[in-house]
Each structure stands twice: as structure tokens, then as C-alpha cells.
Design a protein around this nucleic acid. Sequence first.
DNA 1: CACGAATGATTCGTGTTGTAATTATTTGAA
DNA 2: TTCAAATAATTACAACACGAATCATTCGTG
Lengths: 155, 155
Amino acid sequence: MVENGRTYEQSIMNSLRRIMRAVDIYSRKLNTEFGLTTPQLLCLDIMAKSKNMILKDLAKAVNLSESTVNGIADRLEAKLYVERRRSSLDRRKVFLVVTPAGHAILQRTPAFFQDRLSASLSLMSEAEQQAMTESLEHIAALMETEKWMQPQALT
Amino acid sequence: MVENGRTYEQSIMNSLRRIMRAVDIYSRKLNTEFGLTTPQLLCLDIMAKSKNMILKDLAKAVNLSESTVNGIADRLEAKLYVERRRSSLDRRKVFLVVTPAGHAILQRTPAFFQDRLSASLSLMSEAEQQAMTESLEHIAALMETEKWMQPQALT
DNA sequence: CACGAATGATTCGTGTTGTAATTATTTGAA
DNA sequence: TTCAAATAATTACAACACGAATCATTCGTG
């Protein structure tokens, strides 16, 4: 129990939601002002750093499902920041190629929201930052475990 | 820089995304097996605990926009777990009333995903849990601050 | 009282996200 | 060689999430 009557888990979940919501709201603002959302920026950035990226690998890199990334790729393509080029060696594969306009917008677009996170993190000591990072990674790994994924009715 | 070449911010954002994704995937599984998603469960739970809840207050309680909560209320109403009753005193207000079926499903539905979080948290000391909770709350509060919300092009 | 401001709910449009199904292509084994 | 399995992309569908706009109602002030 924490001072406000919540358990640590509830407080943590609540904070996580608030953080993700802040990221989402920032993403929308970014979109209206610069024409790119955070997920789009994230995908574009990764595509720009790798030649001949295919959708499947991009999805893995950003930790999103293939269909989600496919939709993001659609929107980036519609904005002419990305081109799809079918591989001639293996015609199942489609390379995602960042256009010059795509590279240009990457330069002009503000830093990712996580960079703003630095301000909050800088208030913690290096040791605290590291502890925090490791804890979150630990929790993420545990929550991704399949066995948690089977909902059980309360007994 | 962390050992994998990422900054703490990048690692933290990545972990947050992974955690939220795990929550989302669990939510979908819950929906196919119990007919309620996590957001629906969260809203229903709060509605059940309060008499004469109106949408505006519910939105505030769950930290979501009114239009989002309105959609969730629509789906709960369609499933007959909630009824909308227009207030006769102030006809702008619509009370969200949990039906007997709604109360019943709340009893039968598995614990929230955050309860599963306990397993991960229990591996940490009380002090670590507390530190983690406070850090996240701190970060959440900072990220909600309006001034961070104004994107600035890189200089 | 009248009328503009405030309040509360709802709708609309768009983007994100997942699962499941479908299509096209390649691979591998009988 | 042939055909089933695997692989890659895509589509269909549903839920979530937001801001902006709209509508009805109430409030408050002149």
C-alpha cells in the first residue's frame, strides 16, 4: 500500500498510462505541426538507417505487429517519404526505401519525445537512472512472457 | 549510454512500449475470452463504485479523453452492462449506471493485468518497489507538463 | 427577462494497434 | 517434378485514443 491507498502495482500502472498518454498527445501535436507522428518518425528513422529493410524486420525492430507497421508504411508512402520496391531476387519481399524527402523531413523534425525524458531523468543520479532502466526492462521481459498471457478467472 | 548502445531514455521508452504492448495484447485476449477489454473493465469498475457517475468525471478518473470514454461507454451499453440515464435535475448530465449483468461480470472477470505485475515486483525489495513507483510518478508528472508539449525544431 | 458563456454529451475524422484471413511466392521433401 | 509447408505482405475488422466541432441545456450578468 502506498500513501494514497493504492498498491505499488496500481500506482505503477497508472503512471505508465499517464506517460504513454503524454507520449500520444505529444505525437498528435507533432503530427499537426510537422505531419509525422511518433510511430511514423520511429519507423522512418529505422528505415533510414538500414538499406533494404523489409516490413517483417521493421516490425521486429520497433516491437509492433506487421499489420500495424504496414499501415504506418502506407501513410509514409502516401506522404512520399518512403517507397516500396519489390525485390527481384525474392518477389515476396518488399524493400522499404526512404526517399530524399523522407531523409529531409527526418532532419527537420524535432527530437523524439524520449529526449524530453532526459530532463526528468537528469534529476536522478546515474545509479538511479540505471536502476530504473533495469527495473523497467525486467518488468517488460516478465510481462511479455507467454504464461502471463492466459487469463485465469478469480478463484 | 547503456551496454547495448542505447541511452537510458531510449531503453526506458522501449521498455514502456513493450509493457504497454503486453497490456494491450492481454486486453485483447481478455476480450475474446470474457467479452471485456481492460479499458472497459477499468471503466466499469469505477462506475460500479460510484453512484450517479457522469461521463466527464469518469474520463477524469481513468485519465482518458471524454470522447474515448464515450466510445467505451457505448460498447458497455451495447453489451447491456451499463445504462445511460439522463438526469432530470440537469438534463445535460447523463448518469452511467451499471446493470445487474454488469456487476455480475465484474465478479467473474479475471483480475486486472497489473495484478500480474505483482509477480515481477515481488522480486524487488520493498525499497526498490517504492523507488520505482516514485520515479515513475515523477516522470509522469513531468511529462504531462504543458511546456514539454510545444515541439521545437532541432537547432 | 434575455442572451452570451459555460457545461456536458455526442459525433466526426484520423491514426494506432492487434488478430485472423488471404494472396503471392519460395522452399523443400516425396 | 510436384505439391504441401513456410514465408512475406497485405487486407478486413474491431477497439482505442485524441482533438475539434456540434447540440442541448443551464448559468450568470446586464
